[in-house]
């Protein structure tokens, strides 16, 4: 069910505010103090009665970041390219923002050849349907806390000739804009392992709703 009440933004603030607050272990008053607003305001955002102001939207996303990182988001983004594991970041339009060296190796090309291209231009089948499932569930609106999945990647274009099974973990990253990006990390696995994961998940993926 799409929520179209806040036309100025695609983010679903009730989920984002509550999810941040609960993961940080704060009550409404404590979060209100951090954001320099009243507790009533926080309660209205969480109930969907109002959307936070632009100042608070940015602040909230910055707090999300500051709670787990010592480095800036730019540095983090650059660092992903050096990661020897499978990692990539995709935006709401399905465009790869950055890809790790580990992921590029699996795709048979360099991280630079993947970044800036859309996921369905690079891979057939599973990768695109995962993006669509996440998207439909409101991942890019901040409605999803995380997901686990198993995919078969079949490369095309830049990634032509590559074919691998992967077991992935997915979570939202809260970036300036404000926008939610999809951070995928995982590992190449054997076909047997891929089938085992799908059986355990009861399908290609399991999505966990934000609180």
């Amino acid at each position: 069910m799409m929520d179209t009440r806040f036309n100025n933004s695609e983010i679903y603030w009730p989920a984002v505010v509550r999810h941040y607050r609960v993961s940080a272990g704060l009550n409404q008053t404590e979060l209100a103090n951090r954001l320099a607003v009243t507790q009533t305001m926080v309660s209205r955002w969480e109930a969907g009665g109002a959307a936070p102001s632009r100042r608070v939207q940015d602040l909230l996303f910055d707090l999300f970041w500051a709670d787990s990182a010592t480095i800036s988001r730019d540095v983090w983004m650059q660092r992903i390219a050096h990661n020897p594991c499978m990692v990539f970041v995709v935006d709401a339009q399905g465009v790869v923002q950055t890809a790790s060296r580990g992921f590029a190796r699996l795709a048979g090309c360099s991280p630079d050849e993947i970044a800036g291209r859309s996921i369905d231009a690079l891979f057939e089948g599973d990768a695109m349907s995962l993006f669509e499932r996440l998207s439909e569930a409101g991942f890019f609106e901040g409605r999803i806390a995380g997901a686990e999945s198993a995919e078969l990647y079949i490369g095309r274009d830049q990634a032509a000739g590559s074919r691998f099974f992967a077991h992935g973990l997915h979570r939202p990253v809260f970036m300036p804009g404000p926008q939610v990006l999809w951070l995928a990390s995982g590992s190449e696995v054997t076909q047997q392992n891929y089938e085992d994961v799908r059986e355990r998940l009861g399908g290609p993926s399991v999505l966990r709703k934000a609180i």
Partner: peptide, 8 residues
């Protein structure tokens, strides 16, 4: 999430 990661 680290503990669930299938990677190293």
């Amino acid at each position: 999430l680290v503990t669930l990661n299938p990677g190293i």
